[in-house]
Structure formats: C-alpha cells, structure tokens
Amino acid sequence: MTQSRKRVLFIAKRLLQAVPVIFGIVVVNFLLLQLMEGDAVDVLAGEAASATPEYMAQLREKFGLDRPFHVQLWAYVSNVIVLDLGYSFRYDMPVVDLIMTRFWPTMLLMTTTLFIAITVGIILGLLAATGLNRWRDTIISVLALVSYATPLFWVGLMLVLLFSVRLGWLPTSGMETIAAFYEGWDRVLDIARHMVMPVTALSLFYMAAFTRLMRASMLEQSNMDYVTTARAKGLTERRIAWVHVLRNALLPVLTMGGVQVANLLGGSVIIESVFGWPGMGLLAFEALFARDLNLLLGIFLFAAILVLATNLIIDILYTFLDPRIELS
C-alpha cells in the first residue's frame, strides 16, 4: 500500500472513531451542565431587576426549560444529529450563527499565537540547549519560568497600562477601531494593531512551555547513539544540532502543540475578556454566567471538534517529520 493511500484510510478511520467520541462529549456535557444551580430565566429576570411570575413562566415555556430533563436531553441530542444546535436563550438567535461570528476572531488569535509561541519557543529552546549552562541558557530559562508563572490577566492589564495608557501606542481593547470604518489594507493594519497585546500576552505564556520542552528534548536527543555516530563521522557540532537533533527533538514539541490547542481555548477566555476580543472564549464565559445552555453546549461541541481535528493533523504531520512512523 502506498503511503498516501494509507493516509486516506487512516483519516477515514479516525473520522469514524470521532463520531461516538463527540456523541459522548455532547451527552456528558449536557449532564454536567444540568448540575448548575439556576437557569437562563433567573439570569434574565435578575438583570431586569424585576419580573412577574407570568413573565418567567412564559420564558421557561419558550426555552423548553419547563419540560422534564430526559425530554430536554433527547430533544437536544436528536437535534445535534441533524446538525441543529438550537437557539441561544439569551441572544434569541441560532447557536451556529452566533458561534460562526465569534469563531474567526478566536481562530485568528489562536493560530497567530500558536505560530509565534511554537516558532519562538523552538528557537529559544534550541539556543538554550546549544548554550547549555551558559549565560544564554540561564537568561532564557529564567524568562521562560517567569512568563509561565505570571497570571495571564495580569500580563494583559500591565500591557494595557504600559502601551495604551502610558505610551499611547496601542488601543486598549476591541478588534478594530469602530468609529473609523477602515477598508482594505487599512483595516488589516488596524486589526493587526489591536492584535499585538492579546497575542503577546497569550504567546508569552505558551512560548514558555515550548521553550522548556524544546530544550529538554534537544538535550535528550544529544545523548543518542546517532549523535555519537555523526560526531565520529566528523560533522560539526552546529550541523549535528541543526540538522540531526532538531528534527528528532521536534516530535514531542508537536505533540505538545496539539495538547495546547485545548488549553489555548481556555486561555483565550481570560485574554478575550481583558481585551474585549469578540471571540468564542468570551462568548463561552458570558454563556456560562447567563446559563445559556444551548449556546454553551454548542461552544463545547465546536471546541471538541477543533481539538479532535488538530490532533488528527498532528498525527499526520508526524509521518512527514519521521518517516519511520507508520499510520495504521
């Protein structure tokens, strides 16, 4: 069987396996969310600071919250099977539409962050490993430790304080300058300016993890037999590190990249709140406090699919990095 045919079969198999996993996630999420006290109607009435019993009963009936639990679960699951994620209680619009408007800002934030965090993390890890126990290694290791240990929201607020309030270089929040109505490249530039701080805050945190991992991985590989062989062949240390060790050391970093996608979604909740970034993390945060169950379940489902998809992509990437790995 050729490698590419194997790949197609592998993908098909994984997609098939994903179906029961996603089904399980939907049901477990639904059960977990039932454990929360209070419902969307309490919150809507709470915000209004007053309400009549008639009004609250009306809303519960409209949302279907007056039905028994198993009926609600059945209705939800059978809707998801036909790809209908239902209506958001709070925003009174289809969950899919709501998520789609918020999906791209989050993707923009996440892919940029992942790209920067992985690239810079790999480079820093490499620099630290090749300069083991010298000043370069010490500085990078300390920096990584500090940026990993600092809370995300604090970094975000400090960036705002420095670059927006003190220096006035960057806007405090949002995704674009809303009263300006930029078009074309001006708009791209404007969005990029708004991205600088949230991406920096998020990248600092995740970059630290990649740096540490890359450093450790490089050190582990450099004790392998093939390195000794390369050295015996008379290759320069630089060539050994950059060509032979690097490629092998990247594998665990890649695995970590896949795992971090799920974490990054969590981190984006904080960063999107601090910077008012109109993404899915912020939406999930609001949906939780509004007890908007349909919306929350929809976001969880999207997140689950995203994580499954990323892991599939990473498994395939492995085979390119290390041809010895076979897909089965």
Partner: peptide, 17 residues
C-alpha cells in the same frame, strides 16, 4: 461598546477611546 473587563474600561476612559 461592550468591554467586559472593569480594568480595561478604566484604561479606555483614560486613553479617551
């Protein structure tokens, strides 16, 4: 504008945004 974080709202008032 919807700015969820109170600290960021304060900053946005300071910068005049």
């Amino acid at each position: 504008r919807f700015i969820p974080d109170p600290g960021t709202r304060t900053a946005a008032m300071e910068t005049g945004e």
